[in-house]
Amino acid sequence: MARLSLFGAICLAALLSACASAPSRDVQPLQTTGTLPYRHYWREGDPVFVRVQASSADALLLAEPDPWAEPLALLEYGQPLTVLDESHGNYISVRTRGLGVEIEGWVMRGTVGIRAPLLSELEQHELERTGFESAPDATAPPVEGRPTEDGSNDLARGLARLDEHEADLNRLRGGDALNPDPAITRARFRAFGEQGGLLGD
């Protein structure tokens, strides 16, 4: 009986030892490439990065957790923010620093992610202009090349048409063709709703 107990103990020890050596699934590390680009739940103090560009009306820090709240500041693509509170459904309370001034406000949950995005040289320049440092070695390869390897002239022609289309849209949204302003864009969208009597009483 004693031998049996000893045998059982060895089995248990072997089981625990083998299981302990299995690779564990760590919690997603922050700020590194090679992890999920977002995480649904944040903790206070988590660093996050803006994932949208100035052509998006979401690139704004809002005064309240409301889609039509007053914009407090423009957000740059890749701008680091610190999570303060995530208990308001689709909105996250964040703190950021623009031109040396700390400011707190709200962003949509999807607007930010835990992964520092790869920035083009132009985007990196824009971010640094506003006083932020981009993550080291985070320069993106040129995505805006043209397909040449398969001789796909059709795609190249389509992309050229889209360049014109997007420049027109930026201009029509009330900003510069190349440097759109999300605050102006958002104001235009709101005015569209007001003029159509869509915002109600």
Binding site: L36, P37, Y38, R51, V52, Q53, Y77, G110, G113, R115, P117, V143, E144, D154, L155, A156, R157, G158, L159, R161, L162, H165
Partner: peptide, 21 residues
């Protein structure tokens, strides 16, 4: 597989290029 918004955008742009062609 979990594409960033920028990556989805460039993909959509490529698909749109086929559509407008």
């Amino acid at each position: 597989d979990n594409l960033e918004p920028s990556e989805q955008y460039y993909l959509g742009r490529g698909v749109s290029a086929v559509i407008v062609d």
